[in-house]
Computed example of a mutant assay.
Amino acid sequence: MKSPYLLTRSNGSRLTTLRGALALDGFALVKLLGQGRFGCSYLISREDQDYVAKIFHPNDVKRRKRKLNWEIKFLRTIDHSAIPKLIQVIDRDGCFGLVMQKMPGQTLEDWLACDYAFGKSEIAIIFFQLIAVMDYLADLGISHRDIKADNILWTGDQLSLIDFGSARKMLSFDTHFNPDFWGIGDVFMRLALSCEEITASFNNGGIEQFDLTEEELLVIKRLLHIEKPYPNFRVLRAAVKQHWT
């Protein structure tokens, strides 16, 4: 859940400790960006450069240490312009967190919350860029497993994928139910419902009412497992390139 509150509304002693822990590495705490079940994210700066610090609740660090180590390992492996780089791990004074590259743009959830009406061409660009990122991750054997509007930043022409807290090693490509396929399909549905070009004849029915070609619609159905899923991201990427761009 996003928090609209300033830092002064958060726990004073905890913030003082966090400020001190960050200061040891030359970082200054700027403001709270958001908070969720497992921790908070903050805007921090060092030498006029902004970063994002993802700080975990102390109790969750103990319970989720193995998962956190997976996230750190994945981020150190990844080298992609659409995925934030891991700058540093903070682990001192009871504070454990990740300092990340600050990526440009606002989340798709923020765009939707402002009642922004996406155009079909914009959705196609987002669609293709996201699938290209997922194809890259699949080559590394990484499944993000939490593709949603909150975890995708958009500048108006460039996409970034954030939050690898749920990521796992992809032991094999699961075509029975792939959470990354489903997540991409769900994001498409959220954006499509804001697009008048796609919903011109939509009347609270199924996706069959979308103003899409049969080929475009089939891509979405296969993502949502309504039709037989794609065998991998490379085949999906080729289908999107052929029918959506």
Rank of each mutant, 00 (worst) to 15 (best):
R234W: 04
K241Y: 09
A200C: 13
E216Y: 06
L98W: 00
Q129G: 06
M189Y: 13
F74L: 04
C95M: 12
L22Y: 00
P58D: 05
S166D: 14
E47S: 15
V52Q: 01
S45M: 14
D93Y: 14
Q35P: 01
I131C: 13
I142P: 02
I207F: 08
A138N: 05
D91S: 15
L137I: 04
T17K: 15
N204H: 09
L24W: 12
F128H: 09
N204E: 10
F164R: 13
S121P: 01
R168K: 12
E109Q: 11
D211K: 09
K85C: 04
V235P: 06
K73W: 03
F233W: 02
N203R: 15
L161Q: 03
K241I: 06
V99Q: 03
S3L: 14
S81D: 14
G20M: 13
D135A: 15
Q88A: 14
G97R: 13
I72F: 06
R46N: 06
P58Q: 07
S172Y: 11
L7G: 00
L171V: 14
L218T: 04
D211E: 15
F202P: 01
P58S: 10
L6G: 13
G20P: 01
A82Q: 08
P229W: 05
K169G: 08
N232R: 10
F27P: 00
L236C: 08
D163V: 04
C95K: 10
L171A: 05
D163C: 08
G206P: 02
E47L: 08
D180S: 06
R168Y: 04
K62L: 05
K148G: 00
L24H: 12
H243A: 06
M134N: 00
S166P: 02
M100L: 12
I198G: 03
G156P: 05
A124F: 09
V235I: 15
A117G: 08
P231N: 12
Q242D: 12
K73V: 00
S172Q: 12
G185S: 09
A167C: 07
R237W: 00
G36L: 04
S10E: 13
G141E: 07
I44S: 00
